[in-house]
Amino acid sequence: MSGDDSRSETSADDRDGDPPADRAFVCRECGRRWYYTKPQCPDCDSDPSVHGTEKLGEGEVQAVTRVEVTPTDVRSPNRLALADFDGVGLIAQVAGDDDPTAGDRVTFAGSFTLRGDDDRRQPRLRVVGDDE
């Protein structure tokens, strides 16, 4: 994980929709971290008023795919990686021409449109050590 500046200053329930792609939820009651938005902490059942978010650091790729047949508002091909960030699993788009394989280290970087109907700019996964 990165330093203290990665901590959200607001509670998770203050957000409008899901947090940015490079942030995981953290429970301030029990310390549990998770990625996919839930109405309570999966360990201690605490409510979102005590959940914050924190920026993910480096993760390890477990599986990859290159999707050629994509929804109309998603790039084609869509390179995806399933990665583990110290126990937090997620699937995310891979940046540029990066072609990670299982075991590679990845981190979120850059600013992209992930879907045409989402006006937010979001980071994608990049192989650690590769240039954008």
């Binding site: 999707v67 047949v69 994509t70 508002d73 699937i91 992930l114 879907r115």
Partner: peptide, 15 residues
Amino acid sequence: REYAQGLTLPSFGGL
């Protein structure tokens, strides 16, 4: 958060 990444059922199958 999966939908936001453009995931489809074949995407899971490919992985």
